[in-house]
């Protein structure tokens, strides 16, 4: 069965306040790094999946992203998927 390596990025919708992002932004300024704007904190979920083909892997990952990894009320997600041979998974 082919294996795929996937990465799902989950981001807060732009309309949703991100207080943690604002706190990190203010820490960046304290570190002396200037010019930081619109810092937003999201999540990255990496996983490997076995599926008959890439289309099927995508379908399963879309379901997971919609129903588990993100909450559509407050978050958006995007998916990256790559083929991966078993012996390259280290």
């Amino acid at each position: 069965m082919p294996q795929f390596r996937a990465c799902v990025s989950v981001r807060l919708r732009s309309s949703v306040l991100d207080p943690a992002g604002e706190a990190a932004s203010s820490a960046a300024t304290r570190l002396g790094v200037e010019g930081i704007k619109n810092l937003r904190i999201g999540k990255i979920i990496e996983l490997e999946i076995e599926a008959p083909d890439k289309e099927e892997a995508s379908k399963r990952l879309e379901l997971l992203s919609d129903r588990l990894f993100s909450n559509p009320v407050i978050e958006n997600w995007s998916l990256e998927i790559n083929s991966s041979s078993p012996n390259s998974l280290t």
């Binding site: 949703v16 306040l17 991100d18 207080p19 943690a20 706190a23 909450n71 009320v73 407050i74």
Partner: peptide, 8 residues
């Protein structure tokens, strides 16, 4: 949905 408090 319930999200992080405004002032953390």
């Amino acid at each position: 949905a319930l999200t992080r408090n405004r002032d953390l």
